[in-house]
């Protein structure tokens, strides 16, 4: 047996998706409820007092940011939990002793996590369409950003899941870094609305580029040029691939 262990990739992928199915109700209902709440609070209550931004109604403006918000958080939590849990309950011995390459391990765990967050993102998009009139100017780019972000942040989740050696650390990065960066990354506003100093500071926030690029694919307007968004997302992907490869190659927190 050389080349590619397809049965193993399918086995892990199905195992992870089965885990998702067991929690199907909370997987679907919670994003629908939280998205609806955002629309009630920001769209209807506050949004009615906010002017259009770049010619788009406020309710419609926040849709790409909302999708990004849950795409990021769920990609990270799915993937980190997926690899952390076998470490925690010690079933990881089987994965480590199996004839599976590093690439196959990453592919199956990240693939399953990304699949789940793509399903979630689609549900949020459908929910949003019930509240506001949606327009997607560049559907192919939209799908591309959608996929790229899900894969990139599932990889980050995978890295966090290997790094974490307790449940607290598992929550640390999403809670203390990713959520604040997403909220401050222009999910609910255009960074042009900020004072010049904070505009400059915001450009150090990587999430700005993700949301800006994604919003461009919807409405054709962006805070930063779309090619920069693309380059930044690609750079994150490369960095996370590098870290994951290093971790698996050295057996960091997996072996010994």
């Amino acid at each position: 047996m050389t080349g590619f262990n397809l049965p193993a990739v399918l086995a892990i992928y199905h195992f992870e998706m089965a885990r998702t199915r067991r929690t199907l109700l909370q997987s679907i209902i919670s994003p629908v409820i939280s998205t609806s709440l955002y629309f009630v609070v920001f769209g209807a209550a506050i949004g009615s007092r906010i002017d259009q931004i770049d010619g788009i109604s406020y309710g419609a403006f926040i849709v790409p940011g909302l999708i990004m918000l849950s795409l990021l958080t769920h990609s990270i939590s799915n993937a980190s939990f997926g690899i952390f849990f076998p470490k925690f309950n010690r079933t990881i011995y089987e994965l480590l002793s199996a004839p599976v390459s590093h690439f196959e391990v990453v592919l199956s765990y990240v693939g399953a996590a990304a699949t789940k967050s793509l399903i979630l993102g689609s549900i949020i998009l459908a929910t949003a369409a019930l509240f506001v009139p949606l327009r997607i100017d560049h559907p192919l780019w939209m799908v591309f950003f959608f996929l790229l972000t899900a894969v990139t942040f599932s990889l980050l989740g995978f890295v966090i899941g290997i790094w974490a050696d307790n449940f607290e650390k598992l929550q640390l990065v999403p809670l203390l870094i990713v959520t604040p960066l997403t909220f401050l990354g222009g999910s609910f506003y255009s960074i042009n609305m900020l004072p010049p100093f904070w505009q400059a500071v915001t450009l150090f926030n990587p999430v700005v580029y993700l949301i800006s690029g994604f919003r461009w694919s919807f409405y054709g307007v962006a805070d930063v040029p779309v090619w920069i968004s693309l380059a930044m997302t690609g750079a994150f992907l490369a960095v996370f691939i590098g870290i994951a490869t290093w971790m698996l190659r050295t057996g960091y927190r997996l072996k010994n």
Binding site: M1, N5, P7, A8, L10, A11, I12, H14, F15, A18, R19, R22, N89, R90, T91, Y93, E94, L95, A98, P99, V100
Partner: peptide
């Protein structure tokens, strides 16, 4: 060391797949 919610048959089939067998 086992999973908790997977079925007995499911986990054995999983192992077979992991080791590259149809």
């Amino acid at each position: 060391t086992t999973d908790a919610f997977e079925t007995a048959r499911g986990t054995v089939a999983f192992s077979r797949g992991l080791f590259g067998k149809a």
